[in-house]
Design a protein around this nucleic acid. Structure first.
Lengths: 184, 184
DNA sequence: ACCTGAACACCGTTCAAGT
DNA sequence: ACCTGAACACCGTTCAAGT
Protein backbone atom coordinates (compact mmCIF):
# COMPACT_ATOMS: atom_id res chain seq x y z
CA UNK A 1 0.00 0.00 0.00
CA UNK A 2 1.21 3.50 -0.82
CA UNK A 3 0.84 6.44 1.48
CA UNK A 4 0.88 10.21 1.32
CA UNK A 5 2.00 12.79 3.86
CA UNK A 6 -1.57 13.18 5.09
CA UNK A 7 -1.82 9.45 5.90
CA UNK A 8 1.42 9.58 7.87
CA UNK A 9 0.30 12.56 9.94
CA UNK A 10 -3.12 11.03 10.62
CA UNK A 11 -1.67 7.72 11.71
CA UNK A 12 0.87 9.54 13.88
CA UNK A 13 -1.98 11.27 15.72
CA UNK A 14 -3.62 7.90 16.33
CA UNK A 15 -0.41 6.53 17.80
CA UNK A 16 0.04 9.68 19.90
CA UNK A 17 -3.48 9.52 21.27
CA UNK A 18 -3.37 5.81 22.04
CA UNK A 19 0.17 5.34 23.36
CA UNK A 20 1.44 8.84 24.20
CA UNK A 21 4.23 11.09 22.95
CA UNK A 22 7.06 8.99 24.35
CA UNK A 23 5.82 6.03 22.31
CA UNK A 24 5.50 8.02 19.13
CA UNK A 25 8.78 7.07 17.50
CA UNK A 26 9.57 7.04 13.82
CA UNK A 27 10.19 3.29 14.01
CA UNK A 28 6.94 2.62 15.83
CA UNK A 29 4.98 4.76 13.40
CA UNK A 30 6.59 2.99 10.45
CA UNK A 31 5.70 -0.40 11.91
CA UNK A 32 2.12 0.78 12.45
CA UNK A 33 1.94 1.63 8.76
CA UNK A 34 3.64 -1.59 7.74
CA UNK A 35 6.68 0.27 6.43
CA UNK A 36 10.39 0.39 6.97
CA UNK A 37 11.45 3.38 9.13
CA UNK A 38 13.33 4.87 6.21
CA UNK A 39 10.13 5.09 4.15
CA UNK A 40 8.80 7.84 6.44
CA UNK A 41 11.55 10.16 5.25
CA UNK A 42 9.96 10.24 1.88
CA UNK A 43 6.92 11.98 3.39
CA UNK A 44 8.52 14.10 6.08
CA UNK A 45 12.05 15.53 6.32
CA UNK A 46 12.46 14.69 10.01
CA UNK A 47 10.61 14.00 13.26
CA UNK A 48 10.51 17.64 14.30
CA UNK A 49 8.60 18.57 11.16
CA UNK A 50 6.22 15.66 11.69
CA UNK A 51 5.47 16.88 15.21
CA UNK A 52 4.80 20.39 13.90
CA UNK A 53 2.40 18.95 11.33
CA UNK A 54 0.67 16.98 14.09
CA UNK A 55 0.32 20.17 16.15
CA UNK A 56 -1.28 21.99 13.23
CA UNK A 57 -3.65 19.11 12.53
CA UNK A 58 -4.72 18.92 16.18
CA UNK A 59 -5.53 22.64 16.13
CA UNK A 60 -7.35 22.32 12.85
CA UNK A 61 -9.53 19.52 14.17
CA UNK A 62 -10.48 21.58 17.21
CA UNK A 63 -11.63 24.51 15.12
CA UNK A 64 -15.09 25.92 15.74
CA UNK A 65 -17.23 28.94 14.94
CA UNK A 66 -16.58 32.38 16.41
CA UNK A 67 -19.70 33.61 18.20
CA UNK A 68 -18.69 36.42 20.55
CA UNK A 69 -19.00 40.00 19.39
CA UNK A 70 -16.96 41.91 22.00
CA UNK A 71 -13.19 41.59 21.67
CA UNK A 72 -12.60 40.32 25.23
CA UNK A 73 -15.24 37.59 24.95
CA UNK A 74 -13.62 36.66 21.66
CA UNK A 75 -10.27 36.27 23.44
CA UNK A 76 -11.88 33.89 25.93
CA UNK A 77 -13.44 31.99 23.04
CA UNK A 78 -10.14 31.60 21.20
CA UNK A 79 -8.33 30.48 24.35
CA UNK A 80 -11.05 28.00 25.28
CA UNK A 81 -10.99 26.54 21.78
CA UNK A 82 -7.22 26.21 21.96
CA UNK A 83 -7.42 24.48 25.34
CA UNK A 84 -10.15 22.09 24.19
CA UNK A 85 -8.28 21.26 20.99
CA UNK A 86 -5.15 20.31 22.93
CA UNK A 87 -7.03 18.34 25.58
CA UNK A 88 -8.72 16.26 22.88
CA UNK A 89 -5.55 14.22 22.26
CA UNK A 90 -3.17 12.58 24.67
CA UNK A 91 -0.10 14.83 25.21
CA UNK A 92 -1.73 17.32 22.84
CA UNK A 93 -0.75 20.32 24.96
CA UNK A 94 2.91 19.31 25.05
CA UNK A 95 3.05 18.76 21.31
CA UNK A 96 1.35 22.04 20.42
CA UNK A 97 3.18 24.12 23.03
CA UNK A 98 6.56 22.74 21.99
CA UNK A 99 5.88 23.40 18.31
CA UNK A 100 4.92 26.96 19.20
CA UNK A 101 7.96 27.55 21.41
CA UNK A 102 10.31 26.49 18.63
CA UNK A 103 8.47 28.57 16.07
CA UNK A 104 7.30 25.60 13.99
CA UNK A 105 3.63 25.86 13.12
CA UNK A 106 0.87 26.25 15.72
CA UNK A 107 0.68 29.89 14.72
CA UNK A 108 -3.07 30.17 14.10
CA UNK A 109 -4.02 30.92 17.73
CA UNK A 110 -1.44 33.72 17.90
CA UNK A 111 -2.81 35.25 14.72
CA UNK A 112 -6.38 35.16 15.99
CA UNK A 113 -5.48 36.58 19.39
CA UNK A 114 -3.51 39.41 17.84
CA UNK A 115 -6.50 40.23 15.69
CA UNK A 116 -8.87 40.27 18.65
CA UNK A 117 -6.60 42.50 20.70
CA UNK A 118 -6.13 44.88 17.81
CA UNK A 119 -9.89 45.02 17.35
CA UNK A 120 -10.10 45.89 21.04
CA UNK A 121 -8.08 49.02 20.39
CA UNK A 122 -4.76 48.12 22.01
CA UNK A 123 -1.49 49.66 20.87
CA UNK A 124 0.74 47.51 18.68
CA UNK A 125 3.31 46.58 21.30
CA UNK A 126 0.60 45.75 23.82
CA UNK A 127 -1.02 43.52 21.22
CA UNK A 128 2.23 41.57 21.03
CA UNK A 129 2.84 41.40 24.76
CA UNK A 130 -0.79 40.49 25.41
CA UNK A 131 -0.87 37.78 22.76
CA UNK A 132 2.24 36.12 24.12
CA UNK A 133 1.03 36.36 27.71
CA UNK A 134 -2.32 34.79 26.78
CA UNK A 135 -0.65 31.96 24.88
CA UNK A 136 1.76 31.22 27.70
CA UNK A 137 -1.12 31.11 30.14
CA UNK A 138 -3.15 28.74 27.99
CA UNK A 139 -0.23 26.48 27.11
CA UNK A 140 1.07 26.35 30.66
CA UNK A 141 -2.28 25.77 32.26
CA UNK A 142 -3.35 23.13 29.78
CA UNK A 143 -0.06 21.24 29.81
CA UNK A 144 -0.16 21.09 33.59
CA UNK A 145 -3.82 20.12 33.59
CA UNK A 146 -3.22 17.36 31.07
CA UNK A 147 -0.16 16.06 32.89
CA UNK A 148 -2.11 15.91 36.15
CA UNK A 149 -5.08 14.31 34.38
CA UNK A 150 -2.89 11.59 32.91
CA UNK A 151 -0.94 11.07 36.11
CA UNK A 152 -4.13 10.62 38.11
CA UNK A 153 -5.70 8.32 35.52
CA UNK A 154 -2.51 6.29 35.75
CA UNK A 155 -3.35 6.05 39.44
CA UNK A 156 -0.31 8.00 40.54
CA UNK A 157 -1.40 11.30 42.08
CA UNK A 158 -4.43 12.75 43.81
CA UNK A 159 -3.95 16.53 43.66
CA UNK A 160 -6.61 18.40 41.75
CA UNK A 161 -5.96 19.14 38.08
CA UNK A 162 -6.85 22.89 38.04
CA UNK A 163 -9.82 22.60 35.71
CA UNK A 164 -11.91 24.79 33.40
CA UNK A 165 -12.92 27.16 36.20
CA UNK A 166 -9.32 27.87 37.19
CA UNK A 167 -8.51 28.30 33.54
CA UNK A 168 -11.09 31.04 32.98
CA UNK A 169 -10.21 32.70 36.27
CA UNK A 170 -6.56 33.00 35.26
CA UNK A 171 -7.62 34.33 31.89
CA UNK A 172 -9.81 36.98 33.49
CA UNK A 173 -6.88 38.21 35.57
CA UNK A 174 -4.95 38.93 32.39
CA UNK A 175 -7.97 40.38 30.62
CA UNK A 176 -8.38 42.88 33.47
CA UNK A 177 -4.94 44.22 32.68
CA UNK A 178 -5.65 44.32 28.97
CA UNK A 179 -9.04 45.99 29.34
CA UNK A 180 -7.58 48.73 31.49
CA UNK A 181 -5.07 49.51 28.74
CA UNK A 182 -7.51 49.98 25.91
CA UNK A 183 -6.90 53.44 24.49
CA UNK A 184 -9.92 55.62 24.23
CA UNK B 1 38.20 8.71 41.58
CA UNK B 2 35.01 8.39 43.58
CA UNK B 3 32.03 10.66 43.21
CA UNK B 4 28.97 11.65 45.16
CA UNK B 5 25.52 12.72 43.99
CA UNK B 6 26.53 16.38 44.26
CA UNK B 7 29.46 15.87 41.86
CA UNK B 8 27.20 14.20 39.34
CA UNK B 9 24.64 17.01 39.43
CA UNK B 10 27.32 19.70 39.18
CA UNK B 11 29.01 18.06 36.23
CA UNK B 12 25.64 17.55 34.57
CA UNK B 13 25.00 21.30 34.77
CA UNK B 14 28.37 21.96 33.16
CA UNK B 15 27.52 19.61 30.29
CA UNK B 16 24.06 21.19 29.97
CA UNK B 17 25.45 24.71 29.84
CA UNK B 18 28.21 23.90 27.40
CA UNK B 19 26.51 21.48 24.99
CA UNK B 20 22.75 21.86 25.59
CA UNK B 21 19.97 19.63 26.85
CA UNK B 22 19.93 17.35 23.82
CA UNK B 23 23.59 16.51 24.44
CA UNK B 24 23.07 15.83 28.12
CA UNK B 25 22.80 12.04 27.98
CA UNK B 26 23.60 9.61 30.74
CA UNK B 27 26.32 8.10 28.58
CA UNK B 28 27.84 11.45 27.75
CA UNK B 29 27.77 12.53 31.38
CA UNK B 30 29.37 9.25 32.45
CA UNK B 31 32.14 9.69 29.88
CA UNK B 32 32.68 13.26 31.11
CA UNK B 33 33.23 11.85 34.61
CA UNK B 34 35.39 9.00 33.35
CA UNK B 35 32.81 6.42 34.41
CA UNK B 36 30.78 3.66 32.87
CA UNK B 37 27.15 4.71 32.24
CA UNK B 38 25.95 2.18 34.77
CA UNK B 39 27.91 3.90 37.54
CA UNK B 40 25.57 6.89 37.41
CA UNK B 41 22.72 4.74 38.66
CA UNK B 42 24.45 4.45 41.95
CA UNK B 43 23.99 8.19 42.49
CA UNK B 44 20.66 8.81 40.83
CA UNK B 45 17.74 6.43 40.24
CA UNK B 46 17.11 7.63 36.67
CA UNK B 47 17.54 10.53 34.26
CA UNK B 48 14.26 12.18 35.19
CA UNK B 49 15.39 12.52 38.80
CA UNK B 50 18.74 13.88 37.68
CA UNK B 51 16.99 16.55 35.62
CA UNK B 52 14.84 17.51 38.60
CA UNK B 53 17.96 17.83 40.75
CA UNK B 54 19.53 20.01 38.06
CA UNK B 55 16.45 22.23 38.03
CA UNK B 56 16.61 22.68 41.79
CA UNK B 57 20.32 23.45 41.70
CA UNK B 58 19.86 26.04 38.94
CA UNK B 59 17.19 27.77 41.03
CA UNK B 60 19.34 27.61 44.13
CA UNK B 61 22.28 29.21 42.36
CA UNK B 62 20.09 32.07 41.16
CA UNK B 63 18.86 32.89 44.64
CA UNK B 64 19.16 36.46 45.89
CA UNK B 65 17.93 38.69 48.66
CA UNK B 66 14.36 39.90 48.91
CA UNK B 67 14.26 43.69 49.03
CA UNK B 68 10.75 44.84 48.16
CA UNK B 69 8.29 45.60 50.94
CA UNK B 70 4.96 45.71 49.08
CA UNK B 71 3.53 42.36 48.01
CA UNK B 72 3.21 43.23 44.32
CA UNK B 73 6.78 44.46 44.02
CA UNK B 74 7.78 41.27 45.78
CA UNK B 75 5.98 39.24 43.11
CA UNK B 76 7.93 41.07 40.42
CA UNK B 77 11.13 40.40 42.34
CA UNK B 78 10.45 36.66 42.64
CA UNK B 79 9.53 36.37 38.96
CA UNK B 80 12.58 38.34 37.84
CA UNK B 81 14.84 36.15 39.98
CA UNK B 82 13.26 33.04 38.50
CA UNK B 83 13.74 34.32 34.96
CA UNK B 84 17.36 35.31 35.59
CA UNK B 85 18.14 31.98 37.25
CA UNK B 86 16.83 30.06 34.22
CA UNK B 87 18.53 32.33 31.68
CA UNK B 88 21.89 31.79 33.42
CA UNK B 89 22.27 28.27 31.94
CA UNK B 90 21.74 27.00 28.46
CA UNK B 91 18.26 25.39 28.15
CA UNK B 92 17.70 26.32 31.81
CA UNK B 93 14.11 27.42 31.21
CA UNK B 94 13.18 24.16 29.52
CA UNK B 95 14.73 22.06 32.27
CA UNK B 96 13.09 24.00 35.12
CA UNK B 97 9.71 24.37 33.43
CA UNK B 98 9.55 20.66 32.58
CA UNK B 99 10.47 19.65 36.12
CA UNK B 100 7.73 21.93 37.41
CA UNK B 101 5.09 20.67 34.96
CA UNK B 102 5.71 17.07 35.99
CA UNK B 103 5.67 17.95 39.67
CA UNK B 104 9.33 17.03 40.27
CA UNK B 105 11.15 19.72 42.23
CA UNK B 106 11.30 23.36 41.15
CA UNK B 107 8.69 24.11 43.81
CA UNK B 108 10.44 27.01 45.58
CA UNK B 109 9.16 29.76 43.28
CA UNK B 110 5.58 28.54 43.70
CA UNK B 111 5.95 28.58 47.48
CA UNK B 112 7.32 32.10 47.48
CA UNK B 113 4.68 33.43 45.09
CA UNK B 114 1.89 31.89 47.15
CA UNK B 115 3.31 33.57 50.23
CA UNK B 116 3.49 36.96 48.54
CA UNK B 117 -0.07 36.74 47.24
CA UNK B 118 -1.36 35.65 50.61
CA UNK B 119 0.47 38.56 52.21
CA UNK B 120 -1.29 40.79 49.69
CA UNK B 121 -4.62 39.70 51.10
CA UNK B 122 -5.97 37.52 48.31
CA UNK B 123 -8.46 34.73 48.99
CA UNK B 124 -7.07 31.20 49.06
CA UNK B 125 -8.32 30.07 45.67
CA UNK B 126 -7.12 33.28 44.04
CA UNK B 127 -3.72 32.70 45.57
CA UNK B 128 -3.60 29.34 43.79
CA UNK B 129 -4.90 30.61 40.48
CA UNK B 130 -2.62 33.63 40.63
CA UNK B 131 0.47 31.61 41.51
CA UNK B 132 -0.07 29.24 38.63
CA UNK B 133 -0.80 32.04 36.18
CA UNK B 134 2.38 33.87 37.21
CA UNK B 135 4.49 30.75 36.88
CA UNK B 136 3.08 29.91 33.46
CA UNK B 137 3.79 33.43 32.31
CA UNK B 138 7.39 33.36 33.56
CA UNK B 139 8.12 29.85 32.27
CA UNK B 140 6.50 30.46 28.91
CA UNK B 141 8.10 33.82 28.34
CA UNK B 142 11.55 32.73 29.43
CA UNK B 143 11.52 29.47 27.48
CA UNK B 144 10.53 31.35 24.34
CA UNK B 145 13.07 34.07 24.99
CA UNK B 146 15.84 31.54 25.54
CA UNK B 147 14.88 29.51 22.47
CA UNK B 148 14.94 32.66 20.34
CA UNK B 149 18.20 33.77 21.91
CA UNK B 150 19.86 30.45 21.13
CA UNK B 151 18.35 30.25 17.65
CA UNK B 152 19.63 33.71 16.77
CA UNK B 153 23.07 33.07 18.26
CA UNK B 154 23.16 29.94 16.11
CA UNK B 155 22.60 32.35 13.24
CA UNK B 156 19.20 30.95 12.35
CA UNK B 157 16.55 33.57 13.01
CA UNK B 158 16.25 37.34 13.17
CA UNK B 159 12.96 37.98 15.04
CA UNK B 160 13.26 39.80 18.31
CA UNK B 161 13.47 37.69 21.49
CA UNK B 162 10.85 39.53 23.63
CA UNK B 163 13.22 40.76 26.30
CA UNK B 164 13.14 42.01 29.88
CA UNK B 165 10.82 44.90 29.05
CA UNK B 166 8.21 42.63 27.48
CA UNK B 167 8.58 40.33 30.43
CA UNK B 168 7.74 42.99 33.01
CA UNK B 169 4.95 44.35 30.85
CA UNK B 170 3.26 40.96 30.70
CA UNK B 171 3.72 40.59 34.42
CA UNK B 172 2.08 43.95 35.07
CA UNK B 173 -0.98 42.91 33.07
CA UNK B 174 -1.51 39.99 35.42
CA UNK B 175 -0.72 42.06 38.50
CA UNK B 176 -3.46 44.50 37.49
CA UNK B 177 -5.97 41.70 37.75
CA UNK B 178 -4.56 40.50 41.05
CA UNK B 179 -4.43 43.97 42.61
CA UNK B 180 -8.05 44.63 41.73
CA UNK B 181 -9.05 41.45 43.56
CA UNK B 182 -7.39 42.23 46.87
CA UNK B 183 -10.07 42.06 49.55
CA UNK B 184 -10.26 45.09 51.78
C1' DA C 1 29.79 2.17 48.89
C1' DC C 2 31.10 2.80 44.40
C1' DC C 3 32.39 1.00 40.13
C1' DT C 4 33.18 -2.21 35.66
C1' DG C 5 31.69 -4.99 31.70
C1' DA C 6 28.39 -6.79 29.14
C1' DA C 7 24.07 -6.97 27.65
C1' DC C 8 18.95 -5.72 26.41
C1' DA C 9 15.85 -3.30 23.96
C1' DC C 10 15.59 0.39 21.78
C1' DC C 11 16.37 5.40 19.03
C1' DG C 12 16.66 9.05 14.40
C1' DT C 13 18.62 9.27 10.08
C1' DT C 14 21.17 8.14 5.64
C1' DC C 15 21.84 5.87 1.46
C1' DA C 16 22.20 2.61 -2.28
C1' DA C 17 19.11 -0.15 -4.61
C1' DG C 18 14.67 -1.71 -6.26
C1' DT C 19 9.67 -1.00 -8.85
C1' DA D 1 7.18 8.59 -6.59
C1' DC D 2 7.42 5.49 -3.00
C1' DC D 3 9.60 1.84 -0.74
C1' DT D 4 13.23 -1.94 1.09
C1' DG D 5 17.45 -3.43 3.44
C1' DA D 6 21.27 -2.51 5.69
C1' DA D 7 23.95 0.28 8.14
C1' DC D 8 25.75 4.25 11.35
C1' DA D 9 25.97 6.34 15.47
C1' DC D 10 23.73 6.55 19.13
C1' DC D 11 20.07 6.05 23.57
C1' DG D 12 18.38 4.64 29.04
C1' DT D 13 18.59 0.99 32.07
C1' DT D 14 19.70 -3.60 34.35
C1' DC D 15 22.55 -6.84 36.48
C1' DA D 16 26.21 -9.90 37.85
C1' DA D 17 30.67 -9.28 39.36
C1' DG D 18 34.58 -6.87 41.32
C1' DT D 19 37.19 -3.74 45.28
Amino acid sequence: MRYHRRDVVERAIEVLDEYGLESLTMRRLAAELGLQPSALYHHVPNKQTLLAAIADEILDRGRRERRAAEWDRRVVEICAELRDAMLAYRDGAEVVATAHTFGLGASEPATQLREALRAGGLEDDLVEVGTRALLHLVFGHTAEEQAALQASSAGAIDWEPGSAGDFEQGLELLLDGLRSRVRR
